[in-house]
Amino acid sequence: MNWHTLLFYLFALMSCGFAIAVVASSNVVRMAFFLIVSLASTAGLFFLAGAHFVGAMQIMIYVGGTLVLLIFGVMLTAHAAFVSMVTKSSDWVLAAVFGGALLGLLALTAFSVEDWRVARGDQAAVTSSEGEFASSIGQALMGMRVDRLSEGNSQLEAGMSGYLLPFEIIAIHLLVVLIGAAYLARTKRRVGSVTEGVQ
């Protein structure tokens, strides 16, 4: 067995297993912990697929930023009554049926195309310069698609312009979100009994 395959199965098992654990657990702090492991293993999958920058970004922003925020939220609302909230069993049955059906559909689709099922034969021919280097990603964000230069196809030249506009939009978006979230979270706290929410 190839080491690549072995590591893939390891990371795939970890990310799927802990994702299922997130669903199965009813303690919200443990759910957050399982989510951390699941998303960190996903970053491992990204590294295996050759997307080094995306993998590092996943760890930095998703695991290091978003989840710290989430845990922060969990701890701020970690009143004993809300740590473990049990779902009704009828909801579980419904969700399991629906989820199982969706999973079956997606799995069938994933394995239905012959071309997707096997890896390319000449993996060794792939030079690591294709996509592993962050420089080309940076240039694509600046509006230069270095990887598309060799394409002779005129139809693909439409994609040459890169992602400058989305990049700018997302920058503004982040600024708006920063201000918006700060404004929302600043709202005056209304004094009330915390226990009235407990059923």
Binding site: F53, I59, M75
Partner: peptide, 26 residues
């Protein structure tokens, strides 16, 4: 040798905080 080495090191180092947060909570 990771191509995005600096970024990787900083990102992974940032995960150390989880141990502390979880220790604090648990």
């Amino acid at each position: 040798e990771v191509n995005t080495g600096v970024f990787f090191v900083l990102a992974v180092l940032g995960l150390e905080v989880f141990g502390v947060i979880l220790a604090g909570y648990a």
